[in-house]
């Protein structure tokens, strides 16, 4: 009797387990499938955007070669360099801003602290690009809307709001015991020294997280770049370039190159993302539990 019951319970467990694995398998296929498809498409030898077969008939590396050699209409290498330059510069500025603001709000007590945090909350509620047109006019008034200065304009725009995104880093700094700071103060450190020599080295994960997120944003942003670059195609970033390849006049000849470009961009971003995934989870679960 008991063994029979045990046996049926085991059977039931086995059935449930297999069902779960099958469901997960189906879901995983659905989630991975578009990615596999784009990788296959990037090696597709047939040209044109819409073909009658689902999988490529023959494979070649032409799409990647064309991406880097055919620079007459859409200059992919230049877009790549533009984006890299903008990303590096705005990453340096934005990281410094985020860490400085977070440190001040977490460790120092001053009169404008609460008002600043309330202001950040209120500003965060406006649709991000509601002010986009206005930003463009301001950049134009500053003379930054033509030629190479567009890069500077984009750097300023990407790092401009950095001081408002302090929540995650501040949450991390809050967890470092105050006793550490007090001990350093007794030893005669200035607060600047505490910031650079104690807090930052203790917060390596969040420094890496902040650097990577601010490095990635120019690669991913599409709206601001489009509004600020307008018709200056020599200043385009990767995101606009890829988007343009799918526009009506280009899609037929550039569709497979789009897939190749998408793969090339996704590899470094995916690597960075998978690397910092643990910081991502830590930072957010802290915010959620609050």
């Amino acid at each position: 009797m008991t063994t029979g019951k045990m046996h049926s319970a085991k059977r039931k467990k086995f059935i449930t387990n297999s069902a779960v694995h099958v469901i997960l398998g189906v879901l995983a296929v659905i989630w991975v499938f578009p990615i596999v498809w784009v990788i296959l498409t990037s090696f597709r030898a047939e040209k044109g955007s819409y073909v009658s077969t689902f999988l490529p008939q023959s494979y070649s590396l032409d799409n990647y070669i064309k991406l880097f050699t055919d620079t007459s209409i859409l200059n992919f290498p230049q877009m790549f360099m533009n984006t890299l330059f903008i990303a590096v510069c705005s990453c340096i500025l934005a990281t410094f801003y985020v860490l400085a603001v977070s440190y001040c709000l977490s460790r120092l007590r001053f009169k404008l602290r609460k008002p600043y945090m309330n202001m950040a909350m209120i500003l965060g509620l406006f649709p991000g690009f509601m002010s986009m047109v206005a930003v463009y006019f301001i950049l134009k008034a500053l003379g930054l809307s033509e030629g190479n200065l567009i890069k500077l304009a984009l750097i300023l725009v990407y790092s401009g709001g950095a001081g408002l995104g302090f929540q995650i880093a501040k949450g991390f700094f809050d967890t470092i015991p105050f006793a550490v700071d007090e001990a350093a103060l007794l030893d005669g450190c200035t607060k600047w020294q505490i910031f650079t020599k104690i807090t930052l080295p203790l917060s390596k994960p969040i420094v890496i997280y902040t650097t990577l997120t601010s490095f990635m944003s120019p690669w991913l942003d599409f709206i601001f770049a489009k509004v600020i670059c307008r018709a200056n195609s020599d200043q385009y970033t990767i995101a606009i370039g890829l988007w343009r390849m799918l526009e009506k006049e280009y899609i037929d000849s550039w569709y497979t190159c789009f897939a190749a470009g998408a793969v090339l961009i996704s590899i470094p971003i995916a690597a960075l993302f998978l690397y910092m995934q643990r910081y991502y989870v830590d930072g957010l679960s802290g915010a959620v539990k609050g």
Binding site: Y97, M130, S131, M132, A134, S159, G160, G161, G163, L164
Partner: peptide, 25 residues
Amino acid sequence: LHENLQRLLMTPPMVFIALFTILPL
């Protein structure tokens, strides 16, 4: 660098926020 560190650290971000977030808004 010590008592008024917040002024040193907060001013540049504030300038950017004023110029690229508050003024446009």
